[in-house]
Design a protein around this nucleic acid. Structure first.
Length: 608
DNA sequence: GTGTTAAGCGCC
DNA sequence: AAACGGCGCTTAACAC
């Protein structure tokens, strides 16, 4: 047996690496020592748990000063047995390891999940900010440096350096590094010692600030999300292959068109701007760095493709602008969606996107690899790629205007609450109050934008630019809006005042503390509203499981749940799902809209 | 090669 | 007085 030593937090720690079954006696003794919680971690060949070629390589257990690093190929049974003991484990980003162990050792998420603490969840509850947002972030290294030992090793970064010295890269290293490499084994073991120590440091902090209940909820939610990820979604592979080809043909056609105007690379904003200027177009808008802006909002009017606004000039539609927009769109759809889908699908044609249950600083969930929360919704062709399992139908239920309802509920504004109770269209109601009974569609659009401005903290300038409306008209609308819904302005003011004179944070009804940036206190309203809407969706996922609807859930998308159900009972299923999503929140009805889509996700967006 | 920033675009 | 919130991902351009 190989035993390494390493100093962590001033204490000498031992890392044991058994080489024969005989060495496992020591492991059994270690397990019998009576630690209430053991650190656990895995080392694998990559991130794609569900795709061919993925392997579990190491599984590590550790307490505050001793770690055991077990090779999966030699000791898979011992690892599984250890995980099946009636005790708690602590992992960092447990969703990943839970799925690895489920898929490759047969210890299921259902079995192990309830016995898991996740230091990433605890970290997010203590401070949800990423490193880039001024927080500690949620990686093991910075967390260890702050809470365990400033000198704690950078195991990930350290290994990357080892990869390089061996002629491997970040992409190839995890699979390619020799399984007996000492640094690899050392760092693998250290991670469990760090996670154990981190847990012993921040676990009590979470309890002290009264977040135990929320912590429990998030751990439970994460388990349900891991099950969702394991289930995945079925991809219509032949459809995606055909789609990819046609998107590439389209992209090529418009690239050629752009080339005729001197733009060799449609993705080069510099080239596009230069060519447009040479054609006599005026580019007034600037990017933050001062370059001419040539995004879609600029190009579409030039191409006369914007149906929203009337053209103010008499210039002919610009064919280059159109070619650039269309080429970029087709290429993006082909690459970011079609290619990614095929790349990430497992052998059975299923996709298992990462579901980050507690991702944004508002706790919003995120979905990546691939980004299924961001598929085009104006066109059904991309969503059509996802189909129900045989005999099933895709359904969905979404919250109706949930952020406005949450804002009404939290602010207690009586006028808005009454409008919601009366089942009125909020934006039309607002438009009528602001512009009078003869309000137009444009008025409703401004009213809607002002409402979003309240939620997002946006000002008159932004709303004017977004709606194309006159800035003075927008200013008047905002004033009228504030007069109509005085409670909302008061509520926002209150949140900002508190942050100005007290802690720079908002606290949501669920007890989540959301730090504010000192120069962006106006974001307070958005944070608490967005976060609360997220908590309502999270609760709906838990409730759906409790109601026996969990087996059908496929994806959360901010304010909706995508699901599938046996074709002959899809209607009942989604009606039940919609019922479960409904609630009364601070006296305001949170309603949902259940809908049967059909054989594919795209059928909810016009596919036939 | 790897990493970073800027610009852009998809969603809620 | 004004202030657009939250993500994931791609390409270009550049630094090391």
């Amino acid at each position: 047996m190989l035993t390494l030593t390493h100093t962590v937090g001033g204490a000498e720690c031992r890392i044991h690496i058994p080489e024969s079954r005989h060495d496992l006696y020591g492991f059994e003794e270690f397990l019998a020592q009576g630690d209430k919680v053991l650190g656990f971690d895995t080392e694998t060949t990559g991130l794609d748990v569900f795709t061919r070629g993925f392997q579990l390589r190491l599984a590590q257990f550790g307490n505050d000063r001793e770690a055991w690093v077990l090779r999966s190929d030699l000791f898979g049974d011992a690892i599984a047995r250890a995980l099946q003991q009636p005790r708690m484990f602590v992992m960092h980003n447990a969703a990943y390891d839970l799925l690895v162990v489920d898929r490759h050792l047969g210890v299921t998420v259902e079995e192990l999940g309830p016995h898991v603490f996740d230091t990433r969840i605890l970290s997010h509850l203590l401070d949800p900010r990423a490193e880039s947002e001024g927080g500690i972030g949620h990686s093991l290294k910075p967390l260890s440096a702050v809470y365990v030992d400033p000198e704690a090793p950078d195991t990930q970064g350290g290994l990357t350096a080892v990869f390089r010295s061996l002629g491997l890269t970040k992409a190839t290293g995890w699979a390619g590094i020799d399984i007996t490499n000492e640094t690899y084994l050392r760092y693998a073991g250290l991670d469990t010692i760090l996670v154990s120590r981190l847990f012993h440091e921040i676990g009590p902090l979470v309890r002290d600030v009264g977040l135990d209940h929320l912590s429990k909820f998030e751990h439970h939610l994460q388990l349900l999300l891991a099950i969702m990820q394991r289930r995945g979604m079925l991809l219509d592979v032949p459809y995606v292959e055909t789609l990819r080809e046609s998107l590439r043909v389209e992209a090529e056609q418009y690239r050629k068109a752009a080339a005729r105007y001197g733009v060799e690379n449609v993705n080069s904003t510099g080239q596009v701007a230069e060519a447009l200027l040479a054609m006599g177009e005026e580019l007034d808008e600037r990017t933050p760095s001062g370059a001419a802006k040539v995004d879609k909002a600029v190009l579409l009017p030039l191409a006369d493709l914007d149906l929203q606004w009337e053209r103010l000039d008499v210039r002919a539609p610009n064919p280059l602008a159109e070619a650039v927009v269309r080429a970029k769109r087709a290429e993006k759809w082909a690459t970011a969606y079609a290619d990614a889908f095929l790349e990430l699908a497992d052998d059975a044609g299923r996709l298992h996107p990462f579901i980050g249950g507690l991702q944004a600083r508002t706790a919003r969930m995120s979905i990546s690899r691939p980004p299924l929360q961001q598929l085009p919704s104006s066109d059904w062709v991309i969503r059509r790629a996802f189909v129900a399992d045989p005999g099933h139908t895709i359904v969905a239920a979404d919250f109706q205007a949930v952020e406005m309802r949450v804002l009404a509920a939290l602010s207690g504004d009586e006028t808005m609450k009454a409008a919601i109770t009366d089942g009125l269209d909020l934006h039309s109601f607002t438009a009528e109050r602001v512009f009078g009974p003869d309000f137009t569609k444009q008025h409703r659009k401004i009213a809607k934008a002002v409402g979003f401005g309240k939620v997002y903290g946006g000002g008159a300038t932004t709303i004017a630019r977004q709606t194309g409306a006159d800035i003075e008209a927008v200013r008047r609308a905002i004033t009228a809006y504030d007069d109509t819904f005085p409670g909302i302005k008061k509520y926002s003011r209150r949140l900002i005042n508190r942050a100005e004179y007290g802690r720079k944070e908002v606290v949501t009804p669920s007890g989540r503390h959301l730090p504010l940036d000192r120069d962006r206190l106006y974001a307070a309203t958005n944070y608490v509203v967005q976060s609360t809407a997220r908590d309502l969706l999270a609760q709906a996922i838990v409730d759906a499981h409790d109601a026996g609807l969990g087996d059908g859930l496929l994806l959360p998308v901010h304010d909706e749940l995508i699901a599938q159900a046996p074709a002959d009972s899809a209607e009942e299923y989604v009606r039940e799902l919609g019922r479960v999503m409904g609630s009364v929140f601070h006296g305001v009805q949170i309603a949902s809209d259940p809908e049967v889509y059909g054989p594919s996700w795209g059928h909810g967006y016009g596919a036939a």
